[in-house]
Amino acid sequence: MGLLTKKDAALIKDPLFDNNPITVQVLGICSALAITAKLEAAIVMAISVMFVLALGNVVISLMRNIIPSKIRIIVQLVVAAALVIIVDLVLKAYAYNLSKTLSVFVGLIITNCIIMGRFEAFALANSPWRSFLDGLGNAAGYGIILVIVAFFRELLGTGDLLGLGQKFMGHPLLGNPIPGEMSGLYALGYENNGFMLLSPMALIVLGIVIWVQRSKNPKLKED
């Protein structure tokens, strides 16, 4: 990357793997459990958080020298809330159905621990460009886990992904589950796993992701 210095690139790369906000810092778990039943919702959520976090980091960073430290939390909340309202309105205008699926969770981005955490820990002490990169990196780290969890939950829970199967084949990706015209895996006796759609399973899938990551990544080994 000629565009970024090594130090800047680390801002994006670190939160993706070694210092992932969800699996390593265990922040932002609530929304990871709530909206990962569908891949589409998870992707939109990841993009929304990226927007709020990257822009919010820049705004906070620009103001970092004029915010009185006593009221900094309130200022951070105002910035986050303003950005979340923009996201919410855009979703309502251009993706109404999706915004209904995500319901309160778009509004609850404000309370996402990752956002306040990055504002407080990074943006208040770094330049706007670095803060922007940090926001992108952390939101991407959050998004990647969301997408992984949602991928397994939707595929195993409904047999479809992003509605692709329904759109192009007229039935879920794994086959047609309707009795009488079964095909694919369903013809072999396969059935969707309803547990995958319940949020306890999101916690378990997330746990397995953390398990795999910790056992593969030597930097995360604990004694």
């Binding site: 059935e191 796993n193 309803g194 547990f195 995958m196 319940l198």
Partner: peptide
């Protein structure tokens, strides 16, 4: 319990 919640029809 896993069977119960995953495959309730069975």
């Amino acid at each position: 319990a896993f069977l119960f919640f995953a495959y309730p029809t069975w």
